[in-house]
Design a protein around this nucleic acid. Structure first.
Lengths: 194, 194
DNA sequence: TTGCACATACCAACTGGTATGTATATCTTT
DNA sequence: AAAGATATACATACCAGTTGGTATGTGCAA
């Protein structure tokens, strides 16, 4: 039996995936969990704080770890990036794609609406960008990545294409579209090699 | 003086851009417009129908025209696509980027939640995909686009990267990011040429 | 005088949030 | 170690405000 706080966090995360933050109903969460408002507001002072906790404790670690691990990759960094993209393809279930990337969803919904969300999501993207960018830079220094490419814009483009692939696949509600799009992205990354 | 229906439509569209569909408050719209519920519900049987009308009458035409016009473009279709991407860069204000692409926003928010939205947004994306895909195919037949590339996956990738660029730029709240990312996309499209 | 284009008044359901109560665990003092 | 004091982890009841939506009235043009 997991503790109540964790239960609230994970059930809210599920709701967030399905309905977005604004669409998430605190009442529904506690009803589903068979607890009461007292419990929820004991752990989280407000709905907004619950949202922040979901980002900090669930989304942030998951979505930075993937790219931070590029640090440990030996060999051409482009292959490291490709390996992670392939991993994302293998992880992408029909359900996953239908609901879209949680990070992407939340950025779209909350970035312009709330500073707290905006700062947190900005931080996650910057960590990702930094991780990919510095991996590419290391590759350049090792002569594995073409000198003429600009590492930071390339990192941004890779992230953009990745999130965009989630978007389009979600719009068309087809996992296959996600795979197709990522495959083209992999070719792009491949072309960064010397 | 524009007619009431149009006023409702456009004010709701503004609200939609700021707060999403679920976050759009019908009460606020009529208050801002200085009209009453009677007027709103006279023209739109429900909030959902109002949302559909926004997509059908405002978003759909705007976001298909841009790519359908590739049909008229003479010369290498890749240059036609690049011209449209450059146009989007020139059109992108700080405000625009902060709020994100309306099409993208709506896809993220409503595609998994409502069939009506889903079908409409799916249709828009398919029109865009078809337009870009067939432009590339024409280019191949004219020997202007490399034979080995697959036109449809490339079209999907271009759209993904475009929407993703909006996403990331919105998350980071920086217009410059959008421009940087699209610049890399332009290089990708450039590389499709023979 | 009929029908369209609204206005007014109202509602039921829901929303996040609060005030207060209480059982149980933990710490402190004797 | 017993007893009291205090903190934790919830439950219950409730609220003020908001939501989309409806039923009905009314002025005005054709």
């Amino acid at each position: 039996m997991t503790d109540t706080r964790t239960q609230i966090l994970e059930k809210s995360y599920q709701a967030l995936r399905l309905h977005g933050f604004q669409g998430t109903r605190a009442d529904k969460v506690i009803l589903d969990l068979g607890i009461t408002k007292g419990a929820l507001y004991h752990y989280f002072p407000s709905k907004l704080d619950l949202g922040y906790a979901i980002v900090d404790e669930l989304i942030m670690p998951r979505y930075t770890r993937l790219w931070l691990s590029l640090d440990q990759f030996e060999g051409n960094p482009a292959d490291g990036i490709i390996a992670q993209l392939r991993y994302l393809i293998s992880m992408s279930s029909e359900e996953e794609v239908r609901l879209g990337c949680p990070l992407n969803n939340l950025m779209q919904e909350m970035a312009p609406l709330d500073q707290g969300f905006q700062q947190r999501l900005q931080h996650i993207v910057n960590v990702q960008r930094e991780a990919i960018g510095s991996a590419l830079k290391r590759g350049q220094q090792a002569g594995q990545i073409r000198q003429e490419i600009e590492t930071d814009p390339s990192a941004i483009f890779i992230l953009s294409s990745l999130e965009g692939s989630y978007s389009i696949a979600k719009a068309l509600q087809q996992r296959e579209i996600f795979e197709t799009s990522l495959q083209t992205l992999i070719q792009f990354v491949q072309a960064l090699k010397t």
